[in-house]
C-alpha cells in the first residue's frame, strides 16, 4: 500500500487534534457566560464531529461576539448559518457554523426556538449573516430582530408558507405566471 487511506469516522481526523483545545475553550465560555449556555455536546459523548454549544437566545450575540474575538478562541469566520425543524418543543434550532482561521478548528453554536419566537440578528457581527438569515426566515419562518432587510430570498415574495418546515408538503407547488417587477424602495433602504 502506497498510502494509508483516511479512516472515515464521524469525527474525522480532528478529534485527537483538537479535543484538548475544545475542552479548554468550552470551559472558558461556560465560566464566562454561566447559565446562558444551556447545554454542551462534546464529540464522542454525542454523535457530532465538533462541540455544540446550546445558547439561550437572549445571549446569542454576546456569545458569538466572544467566540469571534476572544484571544485563544478566534472563531472569526462564519462558515454557515442555517436552521433545523426538530418537530418537538422547542421546535426550531438555529445553527451557526464557526471556523477559526488561526488553528482551523470548527465549532457549532445552536439556539433552540419555540414556534413564533424571534432571535436577534448576527448581521452586526458578520455582514455575511445577512442572506443566510433571510433564507432561514424564508424557509422556516424564523424572524431575526433587527435584520436590515427582513424579506424572502429564494422563494417568490408572493409565496405562502415556509417550505423547509416539516409540515410543508414536498410537492407544495405555487405557480406564478410572471417575475415581480424590481422594487426601487429596496435601493433606498440600502438593500443588497
Amino acid at each position: 500500500m502506497d498510502i494509508n487511506t483516511p479512516v472515515a469516522t464521524i469525527y474525522g481526523g480532528n478529534y485527537d487534534k483538537y479535543i484538548d483545545t475544545w475542552k479548554k475553550q468550552v470551559a472558558e465560555v461556560q465560566a464566562k457566560f454561566g447559565g446562558a449556555i444551556e447545554e454542551v455536546r462534546m464529540p464522542r459523548e454525542f454523535p457530532t464531529e465538533v462541540p455544540i454549544l446550546y445558547v439561550k437566545k437572549e445571549s446569542i450575540i454576546a456569545v458569538l461576539d466572544y467566540l469571534r474575538g476572544a484571544p485563544g478562541l478566534e472563531y472569526g469566520f462564519l462558515a454557515d448559518l442555517t436552521a433545523t425543524d426538530e418537530e418537538i418543543d422547542p421546535r426550531f434550532e438555529v445553527v451557526y457554523q464557526l471556523l477559526s482561521h488561526t488553528n482551523m478548528a470548527r465549532i457549532r453554536v445552536k439556539v433552540r426556538l419555540k414556534d413564533g419566537e424571534e432571535i436577534p440578528t448576527a448581521t452586526k457581527l458578520w455582514e455575511a449573516a445577512n442572506w443566510p438569515e433571510r433564507e432561514v426566515y424564508d424557509m422556516f419562518g424564523i424572524t431575526f430582530t433587527g435584520h436590515p432587510h427582513p424579506r424572502r430570498i429564494l422563494m417568490d415574495e408572493r409565496w405562502v408558507g415556509h417550505p423547509l418546515r416539516k409540515d410543508y408538503p414536498l410537492r407544495g407547488y405555487q405557480i406564478f405566471p410572471d417575475t415581480p417587477a424590481p422594487k426601487p424602495e429596496y435601493l433606498e433602504k440600502g438593500d443588497r
Partner: peptide, 24 residues
C-alpha cells in the same frame, strides 16, 4: 437592480432564486 448615475452604479441590490429546485 441598479441605480445608475450616467454609467456609474450608485446603489444596487441583487435577487436570485429563479432556478430554485428545493434541493434541501
Amino acid at each position: 437592480v441598479a441605480k445608475v448615475n450616467g454609467e456609474t452604479i450608485e446603489q444596487s441590490y441583487c435577487e436570485f432564486g429563479f432556478t430554485h429546485r428545493a434541493k434541501e
